[in-house]
Design a protein around this nucleic acid. Structure first.
Lengths: 231, 231
DNA sequence: GACAATTGAATTGTATACAATTTCAGCTCA
DNA sequence: TGAGCTGAAATTGTATACAATTCAATTGTC
């Protein structure tokens, strides 16, 4: 099994973190999975120092939980945290969508539509994890359009954490982020209609929250190596 | 010169980070200052490994900027970033103040008043940096009362970064966070008046922003060792 | 069989050695 | 003078050795 092309010969900690991030966001490693330093280091051909830095990075994003002397685990948000993440998004994203609509560019809209298309393709090909990942990218792309990098960074982190929440609590794997909502949002932004964009985003987030089953949970297992290398 | 009492014999990276954080937030090390790993390690009696972890932690909080092969520097936010930080706070804090008012407890109010008193004392004793630090703790304390740890964490980070912004762009060092605003906020929260708390916080943040001079900048120098050990 | 104690393997925490890179003082030359 | 060069010193990046801790399997006891 060979390494992926997006990994350079001597990866930096940020490259390792990015690769692990994708694996987590696409649900190729499930919440709670142990991330052993040596094991990860072998996958990327680096020492523990770099892996350690990457894991610390991901822990600051809330994607990984580090317990002293016990190691790093893919974060396993509880029901409380799941709610909190969406409440935080509800404070940030609607107004940010409004800003995005006010600063809309042709390139921005093109990007949003490309994200929707990619997500659609992933869903059709049955790659559910990838679809969740791409659905998150759509939200992040909107935040980036608002030209507020601080807020965009926070939203990006929250969207990432939402991916874990979805892995654990999503009700109906078939009907993910109904791309209808994403289409409508894109249209409102393209039209420069800030009011509508804000409303649509608010509704969309409520919709997502409503589709979470905040009682039970699912589990995902498998080989760490395969999971990281597959994407 | 001896080490401080709040530092254990073998500090963890989090303890080192906390100590550095206080030094930065109290303006004992100015924006742009270089933080040399060996130098910091000598101050705390630890190797570079722990210092490195601490610095990475602070860099994720936006208090330190790490440039590859060049090292770590106290963050030096530009005008753009200064605005963004306050715009983000404007999205989060007013509604969080409302939540705090709705869940108010006697202990919470007591804590807020203690923060105000401490800030007042620091101002009277002329320790401006300490006053800025304590003023930030007041805002963080409100966020904690709202019982939303995710949002509270984001606010805490933004408040920290605001301290750097204040160090660089504050107009009138004498009239800091006029504790009048903090008193009024505390009263509204104590009364459980969510509407008023939200409004007051919104106004308070606008007031802070208005007191920034987003054109010029000041510089602070001195010995790193003294700065860290002084507080 | 269930449970606690024991002990060796696996894993993480830290310092440190060495390599790679940057910094800077001293030098040269226009 | 000042711009560019040079090499030594300072600093950071990475792997690794060793210590400390946790984990897991085995044994022994009830």
């Amino acid at each position: 099994m060979t390494l992926q092309s997006d990994l350079s010969a001597n990866p930096t900690s940020e490259e390792v973190a990015a690769s692990l991030r994708r694996a987590i966001l696409a649900h190729r490693v499930g919440p709670g999975s142990k991330l052993v330093e040596d094991e990860v280091g072998d996958v990327f051909g680096v020492g523990r120092t770099i892996v350690r830095t990457a894991l610390q990075s991901l822990s600051h994003e809330g994607l990984v939980t580090i317990i002293r002397n016990r190691g790093a685990f893919v974060a396993d948000p509880g029901i409380r945290e799941a709610r909190e993440v969406f409440e935080a998004r509800a404070l940030l994203e609607p107004r940010t969508s409004r800003s995005a609509a006010q600063r809309v560019t042709a390139a921005g809209i093109e990007g949003l539509r490309a994200h929707i298309a990619a997500e659609h393709r992933a869903l059709e090909s049955g790659d559910l994890g990838q679809a969740v990942y791409l659905s998150g990218l759509f939200h992040t792309a909107i935040a980036d359009m608002a030209d507020q990098s601080t807020i965009a960074g926070m939203i990006s982190t929250l969207v990432s954490r939402s991916s874990l929440v979805v892995a654990l609590y999503w009700r109906r794997p078939q009907a993910l982020c109904e791309s209808h909502a994403h289409h409508a949002l894109t249209d409102a932004i393209a039209a420069g209609d800030g009011d509508k964009a804000e409303d649509l985003m608010k509704g969309h987030l409520l919709d997502l929250l409503a589709n979470l089953d905040l009682r039970e949970r699912s589990v995902i297992g498998g080989s760490l190596r395969d999971a990281i290398l597959a994407g």
